[in-house]
């Protein structure tokens, strides 16, 4: 019993050290479809980078996307290579360690969403981020409609997106209700 405890304690210490010195966490956002996780992990493994653990952050799941935290060994100067490779494959990396790279924002739009050229609205938002979901409700063609969208955006582009939203809002008389 005593020995068991000691053993556990040692392992615990080792883990702390291990994590503190060598760990990099990547927060990914994957589509909730079969094969997505393996698609994301294979290139990391192929580069010879050790994967310590994969944690599903299911409690944060939103709109068919699953956040997954992947803990890998310190890839040194290969970290950028890993990031580039994943992003080339359209895998969304939201966080590297504590640094937020990309964030999800949700927007509800009220106004004549369709009549004011919804394609143009999306294109203009796509200059700063990526509109990934769009849902539209038009109860009456003559009344104002509502839409909701999710935009994935690099955190440093948020201010620019806000300015663009203000501009579109003024031009098209749309009300953007934001989650941030």
């Amino acid at each position: 019993m005593k020995n068991n405890k000691k053993q556990k304690y040692n392992n615990f210490n080792k883990t702390l050290y291990y994590y503190g010195e060598n760990m990099i966490t990547l927060d990914l956002e994957l589509k909730d479809i079969p094969g997505e996780l393996i698609r994301a992990l294979t290139p990391i493994s192929n580069m010879g980078v050790n994967i310590f653990s994969v944690i599903h952050l299911r409690e944060k799941k939103t709109d068919g996307r699953v956040p997954v935290r992947v803990v890998i060994s310190d890839a040194g100067n290969r970290l950028n290579e890993v990031i580039n490779k994943l992003e080339e494959m359209d895998i969304i990396i939201t966080k590297v360690n504590e640094t937020t790279r990309k964030t999800d924002i949700d927007i509800v739009v009220v106004g004549h969403v369709v009549d004011t050229d919804v394609r143009d609205t999306i294109d203009r938002l796509n200059k700063y981020g990526l509109v990934v979901d769009l849902d539209l409700s038009m109860p009456d063609p003559f009344k104002e409609s509502s839409a909701r969208m999710k935009v994935i955006i690099e955190t440093d582009k948020l201010d620019d997106l806000c300015k663009e939203l203000d501009k579109i809002s003024e031009e098209k008389n749309l009300l953007f209700i934001k989650s941030f």
Partner: peptide
């Protein structure tokens, strides 16, 4: 309703 669908 739209907001509710997105969890807000």
């Amino acid at each position: 309703t739209m907001a509710n669908k997105s969890g807000y």
